[in-house]
Each structure stands twice: as C-alpha cells, then as structure tokens.
Design a protein around this nucleic acid. Structure first.
Lengths: 305, 305
DNA sequence: TCTTGGTGTTGAATTATATTCATAAATACC
DNA sequence: GGTATTTATGAATATAATTCAACACCAAGA
C-alpha cells in the first residue's frame, strides 16, 4: 500500500517545497513524481498536499505520512548501516582534505555523525591548503578530497554532492547594491576579496571574469570567510562565495547577495575518492551522510541533475 | 535498498518456518520468494537465514532485519489505519455472529484490538446459535458472520481467512491412540461428541463419515469445547475439532490429535459480509486485523492457497 | 543403495510496475 | 495579457517482480 518510496517522496517535497525540485533531488523526472503522487492520492482517496501556494502546504493526511516518514526512514537507515557493518567490516581509514574553505560548515557535522556510526574508522581532516591534495589522494596519503573542480585522473572518481550558486557579497550601501545582477564589467572598478589560492581554482575568474577578459581593480585575499565578509560589510571590497556559505549573513542582512549574470554562475561540489574504495561500506555511508547533512543544513543548494 | 516487501517476507519466514509456507502466506509462489531472497542476500552480501534445518534459523543479519520489521511494520500499519479513518470516516456498525463455537479464541482478541482502533464503530457479537445468521446478514441485522460453509448468496461475499485441519481428539489410553490416522470404519464403534448443530454443518460428517456411509455408535453433544475434551480425556468418546482449537490441550498432553484419513480433512474459515460493505475502511481493517490475529495466536493454520 | 516426497534453486518467459518523453494545461510573475 | 515556470497527462519504454517448468538437494523409508 504505502511504501518507502512514497515516504521519501513526501520528505523530499517538504525539504524542497515543490514537486519538480523534489523530483530532482530523488533523481527522477518531475513527470514520474507527478504520476506517483496522483496514483497514491487516488488510491488513498485523500489529497496529501496543496500544490498551489509556494512552498506547497501539506494536508492533515500529508502531515500524518510525514510523521510516519520521520519515524520510519531513520530506522531503515540505521538498519542498513548495521548490515553494512556486518557485511563489510567495521574498521578502516578516512583521511579527508578540503579544497573549499567554506566546507567546514557542513563537513564538521557530517564527520561528527559519521564518527558516531563508525567508531572504528580512523578519521582525519586536513585543512592545510598549501599542498595539492589530489596527488596525495592518488598516492594513498588521503582517502577523500572535497573539491569543486573535478579533473580526469586515473583511479580517481569524482562523486557530485550538490550544486550551488556563486553569489557576490556586497555591502548594503555599496553602489552595486541596487543592481539586479552583476555583469563582468562592473568588476573593473572593484576590490575583489578571494581565498589565497591559485586563481584557476576560483570560479569567479574561470567562469565569469576571465571569459569576459575583465580584471578587478584590486585583489585582496583572506583565509577566513568571516574576515572576508567583515571587509565586504565595511565597504572595502566585494567577494564571491557559494550561496550556502552566505545564507546566515544574508539572513542577518549583514551583506547583500548578488547574482553573477542573468542566469547566475553555478558550481558543483564533489567528493573525490580512489575508485577502488568506492564500494567500501563506510565510504558509501559517508557519502550518503554527507549529502544528507548538506541538504539538511545548507539552504539554496540543489541536487545534481 | 531494503524495502517493506523484504521486511514482510522476513516476518513471514519467522512465522512459518519455511520458504514455501511463507510464500503461501504472502500469496506468492515459493519461486518468487526464492528469487527475492537470493537477490536481497546477494545485494547485501550477507546470508539472512540458514535453510537447512527445520524450522529455519536466522543469522545475525536476519535477526537485525527482523527487529527492524518489528519496529517498522506496526508503524506503517498504524499510519494506514489513520489514513483510512481520515478518508472514510470513523464511525459505523459491526454486528458480528459466529457459527463456529471455537472461534471465540481468536475473535475476542481481534475484536479487542479492533475496538481500540475504531472506538466509534458500534461493535456487537452475537453468540446465539439458535438462528440462521446468513439471512440476518442479508437483511442487514448483522454485518459479519464467521462460518466455515460458504454458500452462493446474492449480495454476500465470503472472504477466506485461513485453512485448518480437522483433527480427532482421543484419550491417551484409548484404543485408537496407536493409529497413525483414522479411517471412517473405525468410527462405527465409537461415541462421537459434537456441537449441538445440524449435522450438515459438521465437517466430520459431510467430509468424512457420510461419504463412507458410516455412522458412529453413539452421538453426544455439548456446547462447550472444554466439556467435550473432558469427556474425551476420560475415555467416554472422541470428537473432531479444528487443529487450532486443540493445540493447547495437545501441548499439555491432555488428549491426542489424530488425522482423518491419510491426507487429513481440511476446512476453511470465512468471513461473510455484504458485498457493498467490503470497501468500508473499518471493514477492511477488521479483516486484516482478524487474519493477523489468527496467524499470531493460532498454530497449525495455513493461508488459503 | 535406490526411490520418493518435500523443499529450495534456477533461467527463461511473462506480467506488472515505474519511469521517461513529449506535450498540454495550469499557475505565477511581470 | 503575455511569458516563464510549474504541474499534469497519455503513450512508449524500461525496469522489476512473478510465474512456469525443469532441476537439484536431502532426508526417510524400502
């Protein structure tokens, strides 16, 4: 009658607020979800949510099913994890590194969850940005690298985690504050603040300024997101950050977030791993945990279509 | 990955102790279940139970899944009931009658459960055996009759609940105690104890003695199962009862249970209802509750194939 | 040791179910 | 009112579940 697929659909609907985005997150077409919901509602002789109104609203029946999902899905997940441990062993090593400074925000909670579930896996997170992590991954010194630029490397797989939009943080009283979206040429008179890394690894250059052959008036760097935003807020520059890294500052109206071009510039965050390790139970579980954590803690991100 | 179908399969395996009987209870072929289990075990890279050995034994992984099933399936059931109530209304009437004296054993617990879940449905159980309940069902004076002889009646549906074997209770020191199974002719020198109803409604006659044209030496009647077995135990007669009505006495070795003929005589218990009421939510739920209760509380019964 | 009946397995064929594709309808947004 | 976005629908397709029919296994009895 009701099955787990339905419960996952309902939670995806709640998380995303629309049928089409829920479909994206479930890796289905919107049509598939529409059929599925129609069939379910007809069979139950109940409507589960009200489509008109954004975000969608759930009926009593829909809420009852969501409660069920909140009870049942974690139980299923827990059992699956236990079986994975039974089948594949409990121990191993997960030495991780991040290329993306803002990733601490979700990686920390994800690793905390992971540690609880896999106490016998040796965890390490390296946050030094002075070396190239991908060769270390190939060598076997690292087991996981979080990065937003995948490259063709033998033996390395890039698993997409989610898509995010690159937004430009701008002070509330900055001249650019009134623009709907930013064009490259607007940057030529601005001070751009970036992380202190190679500019080939900064999407603002590779995807936006370099194609238009525009150079900012000045470039300053900082290691710390919070510091960058302090500078932005005081009108001493602007900086490009993933939307999810910016949300808490946007909500506080500490800065404004501006779109890059009319369509926006989008990036994808990947987990890079050695291909031979992909099927290890704790690796599989980490990837799912990471993705779940991201979708739960970050707003504005989307599943990779 | 793991879904509810798998959980139901596992519990059916536990309840029945064999793949083929579990399949029967799930209304599947044994082949289907074999495929399903093979696929699941291969995907999990775990064996879930040990086939050789009867009844089958579960591995650690199998037990973990059974625990999951015991948590999850009741939650699902509860939610489905809530949705049924939301969709179809909470109130109604269920006036029941039984033709089969021994049915109190499972009907009472089933009705107790039902009352908890449908407090606004007016429940009544009539146990008077002096009137024909099926006409009353047609008239609308009753809503449910539990019976083991279905008949073609317009507007009435007979929903099979389970199959049971008719066994003959015999005192431990009775001459028949040494027989492997009983033939009709053995009855001609025996005192047979039956319920005080029309002999056309007694399977021991219609399915066993009458076809062989044999008459017991004497017939005595009693309303009460316990009384009948008292007489049997003291060697003053024998009586035919459904296996599940006999189990507690067999376990205490109060009497012995003998098969009727080499294949045994089997009956089916039905719930008779007005067809137009079949889709009422509380009726549907009652039927499922009844069947679950039977399978849980009665031993030796089988699903209707 | 050779049957035999009960059980579980297997591969191919079939059936049922889920998903997509292409398009239309509905709705929200200027 | 037009345009973009979201949802719905019917037919085609793909995937998954189930059955069928044949076979393997095993224990009990001849």
């Amino acid at each position: 009658m009701i099955n787990l697929k339905h419960l996952r659909t309902l939670t995806a609907l709640r998380d995303t607020g629309s049928v089409s985005e829920a479909a994206e997150r479930l890796f289905l077409t919107q049509s598939a979800l529409s059929h599925q919901l129609k069939e379910l509602e007809e069979r139950l002789e109940l409507s589960l949510f009200i489509r008109k109104s954004k975000p969608l609203r759930f009926t009593l029946a829909g809420k009852r099913l969501l409660d069920l999902a909140d009870d049942v899905l974690p139980l299923m997940r827990g059992a699956e994890r236990d079986l994975m441990r039974l089948a594949g062993g409990e121990s191993g090593r997960l030495h991780a590194a991040i290329e993306c400074h803002s990733c601490f925000q979700w990686l920390m909670p994800a690793l905390d969850l992971f540690r609880d579930n896999w106490p016998d896996v040796e965890l390490d997170l390296s946050a030094s940005f002075n070396f190239a992590p991908l060769p270390a991954l190939t060598r076997g010194d690292l087991d996981l690298v979080i990065t937003s630029d995948p490259e063709e490397l033998p033996g390395i797989s890039f698993i997409p985690l989610f898509k995010y939009e690159l937004l430009v943080a701008v002070a509330k009283h900055h001249p650019l504050a009134s623009e709907q979206y930013l064009t490259p040429s607007l940057f030529s008179s601005e001070t751009l603040i970036t992380y202190p890394v190679d500019r080939q690894r900064l999407d603002i250059f590779t995807q936006f300024l370099d194609p238009a052959n525009i150079e900012p008036a000045e470039i300053r760097t900082s290691e710390l997101t919070q510091m960058m935003l302090q500078w932005v807020a005081s009108g001493r520059g602007i900086c490009a950050l993933p939307n999810w890294a910016l949300t808490e500052y946007l909500e506080k109206e500490f800065v404004l977030g501006k779109r890059l071009g009319q369509q926006g510039v989008w990036g994808t965050l990947y987990a890079a791993l050695r291909t031979e390790q992909l099927e290890l139970p704790y690796i599989e579980d980490f990837l799912r945990t990471a993705q779940d954590t991201c979708f739960n803690t970050l707003s504005g991100i989307r599943a990779v279509s």
